[in-house]
Design a protein around this nucleic acid. Structure first.
Lengths: 341, 341
DNA sequence: TTGTACGCGTTATCAG
DNA sequence: CTGATAACGCGTACAA
């Protein structure tokens, strides 16, 4: 009794001796259909196990119920939480979420964007790859009124919605905190300057040093394209084998910060007395490392939700080009790795 | 000059004064089309910026280029790595990946399955929710020849492809290792018995104890529906405030194991001398906690790749119902948290 | 080797 | 309030 070909609105129409249009409208509670008809249609639909064919609807409307997401690496706490937020909001509105990883490569990002475009997503959420410097691959979306919302790693040069945190303020706070703990030689482990988040954090760091009249030393600033654990150890080695090593390090992510602590512990360097370390993101590891890592909160789930909301909102108003930038607050989380006093 | 309505095969056909079907065929290198024609068509397609409308194709073929994934929580290292593997394999084959989280709730899982079914995915990868005991929500897929592949948390009762590890053997190894370290009172922190992975790990644990003639004590076995950090602390408190506390704990995940270590350290209990702790999964935290956590490797990316491959393979052979079970090897990773000798 | 014609399931438009 | 019809873009059986 299982219909190889699923039940369509035609089948229901036939059974009720009405037209398919009536069924179509009844199923979406169209105001022009009588209450009784709606009830009848839905009853039969239920009975026959009707499931709407969203592909057909998509073809007709030229848009799917899918939201695309391009992120760097899904297996990072910040990123997976971001996706979680996006998914929650999207599902609530009846949308599915298609994810794709750029692995921080520009070419991948371009390929992903194209694949998502081809699949007719009705909106896109992007956190840019480290390498990305050109944004042409997002033009097809804009030209076809498909909303593009950037999250966290955004493109200043590209006019579209953005959801970010105040990286400058956060970095300023973090650096100021180190200064208040009495640190004088504060190093910075930073990321690619192509990305706003790292540029802004560096600016915040520099501004704090200037504000407190602490000399800025180039050798205390390191840029890395991938602040992973391995790189973290490499940078730690560099800093801690200097003639005058820093007495504090501000790392723009927790992964590297944790490596700094591990390296220092290995070398018998006391934290935070001899070396204070502060990270960024509030990853789970920041509470596992001993001493616990001071860091800056990064409201991933909230950012994901807001990004999804923006996408959904924008996809309502066609032809309206008003781009919005949402900036969330972050918090300084002071823990043992910097608490000197 | 931008076409509001994208370029279609009709536009190309018109420009070349051939029929749409020729274009359609040429674009997929159909053998019946001449080399020159293929070249010409592709040239024009390129020039006009033609992008195939996969929705239209999907409607025709009644299947999309999307693979659905249902997992518990995306922001867990094992899960996000799993997705990463799925995504990589899927993309390679020109498929996109739609993810949805069950948050370990049965109702969510059912809703997600339905949403994915409605969106006409061409295959599904599932890691079951903790709560799930009935599998009827996967029947629509089977009935319509949409392959369903279970990963890690599988349904023994449901006939379909599976990708798993040898949980029994892994747990046996882990327990045996504790015994070899001289532990005599080995506790188990386990998960929901609805899920194969926890049942099997418990069996492995019990088998090892029996093999070595160590008495099995019920009070040394705890089951929790969500082995998160908070639960971990609760369980640690329970174990370590017993009259005769265990001298070792085997935790079926690293999250709880890490909490055990943290709790024990707080209480001044020496690890591994007074309490040996071993986890499961090889999460990043296992290398961050001090002492580093012994654990069992869990090849997440590999499992994801294999699951995706199974889905893709199955979606080729319609009407062939041959379900396969793939079992991957795991490794015991001995670290400081258990190394007594 | 190429063309014609129809159908996939839905929905918007227009007519009643 | 309801119905008929045309489209959305592509793929394919059938015809030439």
């Amino acid at each position: 009794m299982k219909n190889k070909k699923g039940v369509t609105i035609y089948d229901i129409a036939q059974e009720l001796k009405v037209s398919p249009s009536t069924v179509s409208r009844a199923l979406k509670d169209h105001f022009s259909i009588s209450k009784e008809m709606i009830k009848e249609v839905k009853k039969v639909a239920q009975k026959r196990g009707y499931r709407p064919n969203s592909i057909a609807a998509s073809l007709r409307n030229n848009r799917t119920n899918n939201i695309g997401v391009i992120i760097s690496w899904i297996n990072r706490p910040f990123v997976s939480s971001l996706i979680s937020g996006i998914e929650e909001e999207a599902n609530k509105a009846g949308y599915n979420v298609i994810i794709s990883q750029s692995h921080d490569s520009f070419d991948n990002e371009v390929a992903n964007a194209r694949a998502l475009y081809d699949s007719r997503i009705s909106g896109l959420v992007v956190s840019l790859a480290m390498e990305t410097q050109s944004y042409d691959h997002f033009n097809p979306f804009i030209q076809n009124n498909i909303p593009v919302v950037f999250v966290d790693r955004v493109a200043d040069e590209f006019n579209s919605d953005k959801v970010v945190i105040d990286n400058f303020a956060a970095a300023y706070m973090a650096t100021e905190h180190l200064i208040e703990q009495g640190c004088q030689r504060i190093a910075l482990a930073c990321g690619s300057q192509y990305r706003n988040i790292y540029r802004e954090r560096e600016s915040g760091y520099l501004a704090a040093l200037r504000e407190y009249n602490i000399p800025i030393k180039d050798e205390y600033i390191v840029h890395s394209d991938s602040l992973n654990a391995q790189e973290g150890f490499r940078i730690a080695e560099y800093f801690l084998s200097m003639e005058t090593p820093p007495d504090a390090i501000f790392s723009v992510n927790d992964t590297a910060a944790v490596s700094f602590i591990q390296y220092a512990k290995e070398k018998g360097i006391k934290i935070p007395e001899e070396l204070a370390v502060i990270g960024f993101n509030n990853d789970p590891v920041s509470l596992i490392i001993d001493p616990q890592l001071s860091t800056v909160s990064h409201p991933a789930i909230e950012m994901g939700k807001l990004a999804a909301q923006q996408v959904l909102k924008q996809s309502q108003y066609k032809d309206v080009v008003k781009s919005e930038a949402i900036m969330l607050r972050t918090e300084l989380l002071v823990r043992a790795s910097t608490k000197r006093k």
